[in-house]
Design a protein around this nucleic acid. Structure first.
Lengths: 221, 221
DNA sequence: AGGTACGGTACACAACCCGTACAGCATCCT
DNA sequence: AGGATGCTGTACGGGTTGTGTACCGTACCT
């Protein structure tokens, strides 16, 4: 969940942004002045800062520089001043974008999406721990190195994508082997055994790839 | 040196930007319409695209999507339209910033600096090490000198652009040869062998261009 | 205690996949 | 015209993977 720190001295704008951003499933933190913003950012490092420039206690560019001293968090500046020099000053201080008031909420949201999209490709997806192994479904890698055949991968993926959830034999067979294999539970047993041999510490007593007798299998994180 | 591709159908703006950007030590490439922009970007991959939306031949969002199909190069959109919906459309299509005309040159330059500063880490590794070779995807060079054919380049690029990640055979075939070649794995084997002969120290035991049996290939840094 | 159902394991063989070699063909340059 | 280069397409050997069957242990039921 993306955490946004909103900094503005106008309680009305603050409230409006908080409500709207929360409605968009953002985790919103707020501050009303520069020092509060720096403290809040340090206490709960945000994924994005929306910063109004007209703060009572600090110059906007100083707030930006204060943040940039220790974080590369994206910063979107809001400002009532449309002069070019202000924009240049804020952007060169380290801001990522500069929005002039009055602005449309849709535009701000789009700019938030654009900036976070650029800043967060590092967010690795779905790296799953299984015993002493780390499994990256995106890269198709396992560390320490462990090779799986395509069928083994498919089966493992089905289980890992729903941690803790029971997956029926029928479902696994359909997804991995095809709809017409819905009853060939031999294959399942076979390949579950292979996965356990490769991934479980003690294959005879699996701790993560569990059997639900009569039902199916389950990945236990 | 940062290469900027400027796309605008107004010769006057094009000229003004070219002169001013060159004066700032940017390497400037220009295009007057959407198709020209896509071709220019493919021929000389830029570090930044400045894109005017009012092009005669293509919709602006389509140009953005056309670029985003294969590159994450930063895109700054110029537009005479200040409506929120236009901004949202462009930003969500993949643009990084949206500047409304008329704009100050200083502001545009500041936004260029802001966007390139943010994108730098991504562009920095355009030079990739593979064994004893250094591969520069930007200007298509390998040191020590090693020549690759166009097809070999395309294939290598697909792999190098996602270090450590598995790329499926299907994806490689579609990207390099075309969608209708999705099953012609012979070509893949053939060209992977050629790349290994040219780039791997011991082609029989590749260390960087790895096969994932049944799945695809992977570039291991 | 014996039978039955279910899951785990072992193993053989066929099918598939990979790497490689090689020939034909189009294109470009000299 | 001739040669070099790069792309397309086929063939083949060796290794790996998937498929199918058989067998064993355990839990539960009668």
């Amino acid at each position: 969940m993306t955490r946004i720190l909103v900094v503005d001295d106008d309680p009305q704008i603050l409230r409006a942004l908080r409500i709207n951003l929360r409605a968009r499933e953002y985790d919103v933190d707020v501050a009303a002045d520069g020092t509060g913003a720096l403290h809040a950012a340090a206490a709960h490092p945000p994924d994005l800062v929306v910063l109004d420039l007209g703060l009572p206690d600090m110059d906007g560019a100083d707030v930006i520089r204060g943040l940039r001293g220790w974080t590369t968090v994206p910063i979107i500046v809001l400002s009532g001043r449309a002069e070019g020099t202000d924009k240049v000053a804020a952007l060169d201080a380290g801001a990522d974008d500069y929005v002039t008031k009055p602005f449309g909420l849709d535009e701000l949201l789009a700019r938030i999406r654009a900036v976070t999209r650029r800043a967060q490709p590092a967010t690795a997806d779905a790296v799953i721990a299984l015993g002493r192994y780390t499994i990256d479904l995106g890269d198709h890698t396992i560390t320490p190195e462990q090779r799986l055949t395509p069928t083994e991968w498919q089966l493992l993926e089905q289980l890992l994508r729903n941690p803790g959830k029971l997956i029926t034999q029928r479902h696994l067979l359909k997804e991995v082997w095809g709809p017409q294999y819905g009853t060939e539970t031999n294959y399942l047993r076979q390949y579950m055994a292979r996965l356990r041999r490769k991934l479980e510490n003690d294959p005879t007593r699996p701790r993560h790839l569990l059997t639900e007798p009569g039902m199916g299998y389950r990945y236990q994180p």
